[in-house]
Amino acid sequence: MVGQAGGDATGVAVVTGASSGIGAVYADRLAARGHDLLLVARRADRLRQLAQELSDRHGVQVQTATADLAEPESLARVEALVRESNAVLLVNNAGAGGLGPTAAISADRVENVVRLNITALSRLSHAVLEGFRSRGAGTLVNIGSIIALSPSPSAAAYSGSKAYVLNFTRSLQAEYADTAIRIQLVQPGPIRTEFFTAAGVSESVFPEDSYLTAEQLVDAALAGLDAGELVTTPTVAETGIWEALEAARLAFMEAARSGQVAERYRVGEESLA
C-alpha cells in the first residue's frame, strides 16, 4: 500500500531492542543514512559495543539507554529521553514472545508480553508523536508480525499483542493521513534472530526456507518506507493478496453495520410472533 513517501534524511533516530537482531540492523542502516542514534535495550555491554562500532563506521553520534521497557520506571525514563532527543524517527522494535500453551506459561510472562509489545510500544509512539506534531513531520515505524492475522495455539499473548500493533498502527495512519507524519507497519514472518531461543522454542517450528535474515527484513522494510508503503510485509510477493484482505475487511465492516440480526440467529421468532 502506498500513501507516504521517503524517510527523514537527518536528525536523531531512536531504535528499541537495538542490541541484536532486527534492532541492531536498523541502527546500522539508519546510521549509514546519516542519523544520529538513541539506542535502547536491556544489555548494556552489547549496546556499548554497537554504539562504538556505529560511531566509528559511520561517523554519527550514538547515545545509549539501558532499559527494560516492560518495567514502568525504565519505560518512563526512555519516554523522557525520546521527548528530549527531538527524534525525527522511532523504530518500535523491542518485543517479547511469551510462547507456549497457557498451561505451561505463567500469568507473569503473559503480562510481560503485554507490557513490552503493547504498553511500551503505545507509550513511546505517543511520546514521539508529540514532537512530530510540534515540528510538523516525523516517521514512526512499528514492528508487527504476520501472526497478527493468524490466531495461534501456544502463542495467544504474542498473536494478540501483534494484532494490537496492527490495529493501533493502522488507526494512527488514518489519524495522521493528511499530515507530513509518516507511519509504517512492518509485518515480518520468521526471522533468524535470537527471538526463538529467548522464547525457549526451536526454529524448527517453521520450515527452513521460511526464514529471512534480519538484514533482508530491514533492507526490505526501509525500501518499503522509501516507496511510501503504509504496510510492508517483505515475504508476500503478490500485493493483491493484501489488497484482497483489505477489501474483505471493509466488506465485513459494511455488513456488520447492517442494523439487522442475521437470519440464522432468529431462532424461535415465528413462535413468539
Rank of each mutant, 00 (worst) to 15 (best):
D36F: 03
R33I: 01
L99N: 13
L89C: 06
V110N: 12
R46T: 07
G131H: 12
A41N: 02
V113Y: 03
R43Y: 08
P72K: 12
A27R: 02
E79S: 08
P101M: 15
T66N: 02
R123F: 09
A94Q: 07
L69V: 09
A65W: 01
E73P: 00
L54Y: 05
S134H: 14
T10S: 15
E53A: 15
D108V: 09
A137R: 14
E130I: 09
V88L: 06
L54P: 02
Q61K: 10
N112S: 13
R133V: 11
N112Y: 13
D56V: 10
G59I: 10
A18R: 04
R83L: 09
A94S: 10
L50Q: 13
F132C: 07
G21A: 00
G21L: 01
R33F: 01
D28N: 05
S85H: 03
R43E: 11
E73F: 06
L89S: 03
D45R: 11
I105W: 12
R135V: 15
T66H: 02
S74Q: 13
L47W: 14
H35L: 08
A120C: 06
T16D: 04
S125Q: 09
G59H: 12
V14P: 04
A104G: 11
E111C: 04
A76P: 07
A65E: 11
D45K: 09
V40L: 01
Q61H: 11
G59V: 14
Y26Q: 00
N93D: 07
S20V: 03
D28P: 01
I22H: 01
V14E: 04
G136E: 14
A31I: 12
A104H: 12
A76K: 11
A67P: 01
A13R: 00
V62N: 08
P72L: 11
A70N: 04
L121K: 09
